[in-house]
Structure formats: structure tokens, C-alpha cells
Simulated assay, not measured.
Amino acid sequence: MQTRIEGEMLPVLYVSLDPWESIVSETGELSWKSPNVTLQTTTAGAGSSGFLGAVKRSLAGGGLFMTQYKAEGGPGFIAFAAKIPGTIDEHRIEPGRSYMLHRHGFMCATEGVTLGLGFQRSLGAGIFGGDGFRLQQVSGSGTFWTMLGGQVVSHLLAPGEAIDVHPGHVGMFEDSVSFDITMLPGIRNKLFGGDGFFLARLTGPGRIWLQTLTMPNLAHALGPYLGGETVASTAEGSALGVAASSFIRRAFQ
């Protein structure tokens, strides 16, 4: 198997498969392929054993189904294109290690890589309409590729070193990094600061990968050009309840 990443703002991952080699991704990731690359959609991909494993993967933000691509009768290729402006990165994982990944960050992986539920927190979801904060856990053995929004900023945290991050900008981190959700101090900061109610605190040792662009921020930037009642009310921000709900959604999506 050979891979290459082309492009910068909207990159594409090319995967060249030797005969009978395969790769797995969530459904809907395929962009183009050679005719001899076959598709098989199943709940058992990415290390899931049966339906319950697929449900756990789905709770982490992944799909209930996965698609396996296999080159049959000769070499083939497949391409996965970015869906938003961002960065595609390749990572190698060894047995006994794992990574926590943004719930929309997984692109594809080789056989032997497992995708499951790593973290779920639903603070404020019932009151403010947010759907919680979730992370996927990538483990097993093999190679996997991530797609994070905007540029990826990597930090190597020393033991005990901590950084507070808006939850939406948490892209990925090693399992040695401690993760917790902290609440912003002060009612004015929460309601009028525009940064949401919560921050993610990452504490070393270990490497973290932060993404500069989040889907909610991209949608918010495009909102004034799309029209509609919802966009107008969000832009005006005249009602405190609307503002609080918006901040919570931005924090946890």
C-alpha cells in the first residue's frame, strides 16, 4: 500500500492498493476509485464485533456502518477528498497505545485499527439544547488518517503541563494526556464572552493536535450569506436564551 496527500486548502488522500489489499472508512467518504476496487458495507468494520460494537462506534460520532475497499484482480486506487478546508494527516498506531480523536476527525484506516467510543460528556445538553461533547478512541495496530479543520497545530506537553482549549478545537491527543472539562469563571464571561460555557483542559505528558477551524464556526461565518430566520436571530443575538444556546452548541459540537 502506498499513499500520498495532494492539495493544501481542500486536500485529497490517494491510496494505492496492491492486489487483495484493503482499507476501511466510514460510509460516504469515497470520492473516486479504480473500477476493480470493490466496496463492502458492514457493521463489523474498524474492529467492531457485532451490532453492539457498531452502536458504541456510532455513539462516538462515527457511523453505524463502515465500508471496506478491496483491490481485486490487480492493483487499484481510491481517493478520499476533504469535505471542509482542512488538513489530512497520517498516523501510525502500535498495540497498547491509543489516541482520542474529534468525533468527525476519522477518515480511514488499514485493517487492524479499531474505532470506538472514547469519551462522552453531556453537560448542559438538556437545558441548552446541545448534544454533548464526544471523542472517538483509535486503537489497535496499523495506520489511520485524520481530517481536521483548518490548520493543525501540534504541541508536546511536558508532564504536568496544561492547556485550556475551546472544545471544538480539540483535534486529537495521545492516551497519556489527561482530559477534563472545566467551566469558565464568571457569569459575564459565560453569557457575554462569546466563548461558550466550558473549556477542555489537556494535561501532559503527551502530544496534542489542535484544529484551527471548527464546523460550527464555519457555519456561523457563512450564516449571514445563507439567509433565513434562524441566521438573522443568531446574528442579532438580542435574546439571552438564544445566545446561551448558541454558545453551548458551539462549545460541544
Score class of each variant (00 low, 15 high):
Glu161Ile: 05
Gly118Met: 05
Gly116Ser: 15
Met172Asp: 02
Met172Thr: 05
Gly186Asp: 04
Ala125Gln: 09
Arg188Asn: 10
Leu135Met: 15
Phe119Gln: 00
Asp175Val: 00
Thr114Pro: 00
Gly105Asn: 02
Gly168Gln: 04
Cys108Asp: 03
Leu156Arg: 15
Leu123Gln: 13
Leu117Gln: 04
Ile163His: 05
Val153Pro: 04
Gly149Glu: 05
Asp175Arg: 04
Phe179Arg: 08
Arg92Asn: 11
Gly171Met: 09
Gly142Trp: 10
Met147Asn: 11
Gly171Tyr: 11
Ser154Asn: 10
Asp195Trp: 11
Pro159Leu: 12
Phe128Glu: 07
Arg92Cys: 06
Arg188Gly: 04
His102Trp: 08
His102Gln: 09
Lys190Ser: 01
Arg92Asp: 10
Leu148His: 13
His166Gly: 12
Val170Lys: 01
Gly126Thr: 12
His104Cys: 01
Met183Arg: 14
Ser176Thr: 15
Ile187Met: 14
Leu117Asp: 04
Cys108Met: 15
Ser178Val: 12
Gln137Trp: 01
Phe179Lys: 02
Asp131Gly: 06
Leu135Gln: 07
Gly142Ile: 14
Met107Arg: 12
Glu90Gly: 08
Gly132Gln: 12
His166Cys: 06
Val152Pro: 05
Asp175Trp: 01
Tyr99Met: 13
Val170Arg: 03
Ile127Val: 15
Phe192Glu: 09
Glu161Val: 03
Val177Ile: 05
Arg134Met: 13
Asp164Gln: 12
Ser176Trp: 00
Asp195Phe: 09
Val165Gly: 08
Arg97Met: 02
Ile181Thr: 02
Gly124Ala: 10
Thr114Ile: 06
His104Thr: 13
Phe179Glu: 01
Ser122Phe: 06
His169Gly: 01
Ile163Trp: 04
Ile93His: 05
Asp89Glu: 14
Glu90Met: 10
Gln151Gly: 02
Gly196Cys: 11
Leu115Phe: 11
Phe106Glu: 03
Ala109Asn: 02
His155Leu: 15
Ser98Val: 00
Gly142Ala: 12
Gly124Phe: 05
Met172Pro: 02
Val165Thr: 09
Pro167Val: 09
Leu117Trp: 03
Gly126Trp: 03
Phe197Tyr: 15
Phe197Asp: 03
Gly132Cys: 11
Leu123Asn: 10
His166Asp: 15
Thr114Ser: 13
Arg134His: 14
Ile181Lys: 00
Phe106Gln: 00
Cys108Gly: 02
Gly194Leu: 10
Phe119Asp: 01
Val138Pro: 02
Arg103Cys: 06
Arg103Asn: 14
Gln136Gly: 13
Gly129Met: 12
Phe128Thr: 11
Thr114Asn: 14
Glu90Asp: 06
Thr182Ala: 09
His104Gln: 11
Arg92Phe: 08
Glu111Tyr: 00
Tyr99Val: 02
Gly150Ala: 11
His104Pro: 00
Gly132Phe: 00
Ser141Phe: 07
Gly168Ile: 10
Ala125Gly: 07
Val153Ala: 08
Ser176Cys: 06
Met147Cys: 12
Met107Trp: 01
Gln151His: 11
Val170Met: 08
Ser122Gly: 00
Gln151Glu: 15
Met183Tyr: 05
Ile93Pro: 02
Met107Ser: 07
Gly132Met: 08
His91Phe: 14
Asp180Trp: 00
Val113Trp: 01
Arg188Trp: 07
Asp175Gln: 13
Asp175Gly: 15
Lys190Asn: 07
Ala109Thr: 03
Asp175Pro: 06
Ile187Trp: 05
Gly126Glu: 12
Arg97Glu: 12
Gly126Leu: 13
Glu111Gly: 13
Glu111Asn: 14
Val177Pro: 04
